[in-house]
Simulated scan of single mutants.
Amino acid sequence: MKKTSWDNFKEILTSLFHSFGQAWWVEIATQSPRCTYYFGPFLSSKEAHAAKTGYIEDLEQEGAQGILVNVKRRKPNNLTIFDDMGERIEPNAKPAFSGQM
C-alpha cells in the first residue's frame, strides 16, 4: 500500500510526540508469563484503543494468561520486560511506525 502525504505527516508527528513522551502506548501486563509489553507509539488514544485488540489476540494465541491492558501516554525505555527473570529485552529497540497507522 502506497503511503500518502497524510501518512508521512502523521508518522513524523507521532515520532515528535514520542520524543516528548506525549505519544500513546498500549501497555499489556500478563500474569503468565509475568511480562509487561508496550505497543506503539500512537498519535491518539483512539488509535491505541483500536489497535489493542490485535495485540491481545496475539498474546492469547501464544498462551499468555491474566492479561491486563492500559492505554496511556508514556515513553517506555524497553518494549518488553520479563518480570520472572528480572530481565529487560530489546534494550536498543526503536518503535516501529509502519503498519500501525
Rank of each mutant, 00 (worst) to 15 (best):
L79N: 04
N78C: 07
E57I: 13
L79C: 01
V69G: 07
R73S: 12
I56V: 15
P76E: 04
T53L: 02
F82M: 12
A64M: 10
K52C: 08
I81W: 04
R73L: 11
L79Y: 02
K52S: 10
G54D: 09
A64N: 08
L68M: 05
F82C: 14
I81D: 00
Q65M: 15
Y55S: 09
I67L: 03
R74M: 15
K72T: 07
I81K: 05
Q65V: 15
A64F: 13
V71L: 01
L68E: 12
L59T: 04
E62M: 07
N77T: 14
K52H: 11
D58T: 15
R73I: 14
E62A: 09
R73G: 09
V71A: 03
K52M: 12
Y55F: 13
T80G: 06
K75P: 10
P76N: 09
L68T: 10
T53W: 00
G66F: 06
L59H: 00
K52I: 01
E62P: 00
K72S: 07
R74D: 15
D58C: 06
N77M: 09
I56P: 00
V71C: 07
D58I: 13
A51F: 14
T80I: 13
Y55G: 01
G63M: 04
I81S: 02
F82D: 11
F82G: 02
L79S: 06
K72P: 00
I81E: 06
P76Q: 13
T53I: 05
E57D: 12
D58A: 14
P76L: 00
G63E: 01
N78P: 03
G66Q: 10
Y55W: 13
L59R: 01
T80C: 06
D58R: 10
R74P: 06
P76A: 05
G54L: 09
V71E: 05
T53E: 13
G66W: 11
L68F: 04
E57A: 14
G63I: 07
Q65Y: 02
V71G: 05
Q61R: 08
G54Q: 01
I67H: 01
D58Y: 11
I56W: 00
N78L: 01
K52V: 11
G63D: 05
A51N: 10
N78V: 08
P76R: 14
K75A: 12
P76G: 11
N78E: 04
A64V: 04
P76V: 01
L59M: 03
G54K: 00
V69R: 03
G63A: 10
G63Y: 06
N77R: 09
F82I: 14
K52P: 05
Q65C: 07
Q61D: 10
D58K: 15
L68G: 03
Q61G: 02
K75I: 11
A64I: 02
G54A: 03
G54C: 01
R74F: 05
Q61E: 09
F82P: 05
N77I: 11
D58S: 14
E57F: 08
P76D: 03
E57K: 14
F82Q: 08
N77K: 14
L79P: 00
K75T: 12
F82R: 14
